[in-house]
């Protein structure tokens, strides 16, 4: 069985970047300067994941203050609400308040966004290994306060996502659903325009029409028929233990699949940077 490593989600900021953000928040750095710093740190991240031999990785999302923020800030009719706890963690996000899902604003140019870090939202290094990242549509709605129909909000968000994919000419997109859902057909049209890697939480349910390039979750037997390459979330983002015994965890699948994606369980942003930098060398069982 061929193991394919994939790292997704927000990567922890270095001390340098945290300090730079601190200065920027106090007005001691301009938006241009912090933007350059984000770019520099992103390049260092790309070097690091290359050195670690990671096959696919998302943008490090260094200017994403939470999983939803830049997208919420880029759609007319959505504003930021109060801080809200992310699942059962000690990490908080600003709850989007969706009045309506309106037009998409500019994402790929330097743009100051209220009190948040400046855009662009992606720092694509042009590599074949690079995946653009978007938060799952179902989770986005679940984590928001929605005025009106949630179903309508999901459909409009899907249309926005298609617009984003076309605008950036995204070949490979990773979509992360941190909450369980039973509506993965919402991605059918998106799957027609890009190659989607879907990271799911909990059980995967489909009425049979879903077809992704990859689905990554906890039980590949349940979703392997809905994708080309199944994956498992086995590199634990909630422990500082470096070697998670990845090979032991994937061994049971070796007779079943020719290829298996090995991914992290959550954004590495839940880890101290020093630990994250070591863990990325363990995706295929390294120390």
């Amino acid at each position: 069985m061929e193991l394919i490593s994939l790292l997704y989600g927000i990567y922890p900021r270095s001390e340098n970047l945290r300090k730079a953000y601190g200065k920027w928040e106090k007005g001691q750095l301009t938006s241009d300067e912090i933007s350059n710093k984000i770019q520099e740190e992103s390049l260092l991240y790309f070097d690091l994941v290359k050195e670690a031999g990671i096959n696919y990785f998302t943008d490090p999302l260094f200017n994403w203050y939470d999983l939803l923020r830049p997208i919420a800030l880029s759609i007319e009719g959505i504003r930021l609400g109060p801080l809200s706890r992310y699942k059962e963690t000690n990490t908080f996000y600003r709850e989007p308040e969706i009045e309506r899902v309106g037009k998409l604003k500019a994402l790929n140019e330097l743009r100051e966004v209220e009190e948040n870090p400046p855009f662009p939202i992606y720092h694509d290094n042009g590599s074949e290994s690079y995946l653009h990242f978007l938060p799952g549509i179902n989770s986005f709605v679940k984590m928001s306060k929605v005025s009106g129909s949630q179903e309508e909000a999901r459909k409009l968000l899907r249309d926005i996502y298609i617009e984003i994919v076309k605008f950036f000419r995204i070949k490979r997109l990773l979509v992360f659903e941190p909450f369980e859902s039973n509506n993965y057909e919402i991605y059918n049209e998106l799957n027609n325009v890009t190659s989607t890697y879907l990271v799911v939480t909990g059980k995967f349910n489909s009425n049979g029409s879903a077809k992704f390039f990859s689905i990554i979750g906890d039980d590949p037997y349940s979703y392997s028929k809905y994708c080309d390459v199944p994956g498992v979330k086995v590199v634990d983002a909630q422990t500082t233990r470096i070697n998670d015994g990845v090979l032991e965890k994937v061994r049971p699948y070796s007779n079943e699949f020719d290829r298996l994606i090995v991914a992290n369980t959550e954004s590495f942003d839940f880890l101290p940077r020093t630990i994250a930098d070591k863990k990325i060398f363990t995706f295929k069982g390294g120390q």
Binding site: P12, R13, E25, Y65, D66, F92, P272, R273, T274, I275
Partner: peptide
């Protein structure tokens, strides 16, 4: 080992 995020920065 180091800090982890609570929110924002």
């Amino acid at each position: 080992y180091g800090p982890v995020r609570s929110f924002d920065n």
